Simulated assay, not measured.
Amino acid sequence: MTDPTAAALTGVVPVLPTPFTEDEEVDRRSFAALADHVMGLGVPAVMFPGFASEYYKLDDAERLLLSRDLVTAARAHPGVTVIASVTAHATSVAVRQARAYLDLGAGALNVLPPHFPAPSADHVREHLHTLLAAVAPAPVLLQYAPEDAATRLTPAVIGELAAEHPNLVAVKVEARPPGQFIADLRAAEPAVACLAGSGGLFLLEALRAGACGVQPGSSFVELYLAVWRAWSGGDERAAARRFAGLLPHLVGWATTQEPMVAVEKVIAWRRGLIATPVCRRPHRALSPVAAASVERFLAEFADELSLPHPVRSAR
């Protein structure tokens, strides 16, 4: 098992969104600008395409095109690992998708287990075994998201996978709450490294249970970095204070994927990080309550999140 403190999976590892133009075409210029901004903040790795990227609204060509753009952008940021997310449900397709990302230059893979149409536990384990073996020795991060992708895996099953496949280097835990699940994975033999998911909603609980970092969205990475730097510097009280300011907003936003994606895009747009806040249809628009919450958030964290120059939309 890879050391759970491996640099690429320690700290804040953001998931990049997919910016769109007003007519819902992929906006590569905004994507490149946002990727450059996020990687320039000093994160160890970035991931694409995940739930926060609206991966389920992208075709195969778009996923590969933007992944290639991300690998290219990362060359200007030595030490930043590109994690490509494998989301295909069919095992053979997932293997091809994973190899294509590695061929592009991705440094690691994220794997979302198949969940449609409700595969059996045996089939999910077989899928993961096959994929891990097919891409070895490439490092793999397993995404466990039982709320958003209704596939259930136990810490014991994940531990068995990690013992058999050393390239399973970590798990993104999006169980709610995640503390006991993370503690069980950390107690496995060998211990399994964990990242907190769910937009960082349970970040302090996850860190206290042994998580080595968090994988949030990309529109306010600076705030997660402030929490992480306090925590990793040994000042838990400062980390808790920093997180206490962020938590009330996350509680209102990090309920289901679509509202959180919409919030993240509005914030990134208001900061000038992307040219539009457009989500591809069908999507769930921000409620008036959520929109007002975004305004309070931007006012509260204006000094930490200001960015003076917006980017122009381009396909």
Rank of each mutant, 00 (worst) to 15 (best):
I158D: 11
R270S: 03
I274Y: 03
N167I: 13
L195N: 03
A35L: 05
L58G: 05
A211R: 07
L58Y: 05
Y224I: 03
L112P: 02
D3S: 14
G272E: 12
F48K: 01
I158M: 10
R315Y: 11
D303N: 00
A6E: 11
L246Y: 12
C212S: 15
V227H: 06
A32T: 12
A163I: 12
L168Y: 10
L195E: 02
R242M: 01
V80G: 09
H123A: 15
V95M: 06
G272L: 07
A292L: 04
R315V: 15
E236M: 10
L9G: 08
G42W: 14
I267C: 09
D60A: 15
V192R: 13
P17V: 01
T2V: 13
L305G: 02
A239Y: 06
R237F: 00
L58T: 12
A239R: 10
L109V: 13
L286C: 04
C279S: 14
D36K: 06
S67C: 13
G245Y: 09
R237H: 09
H249Y: 15
F301W: 15
L142R: 00
K172A: 02
D23A: 05
T151P: 00
W228C: 11
R296N: 09
L223E: 00
L102R: 12
H129W: 10
A170E: 10
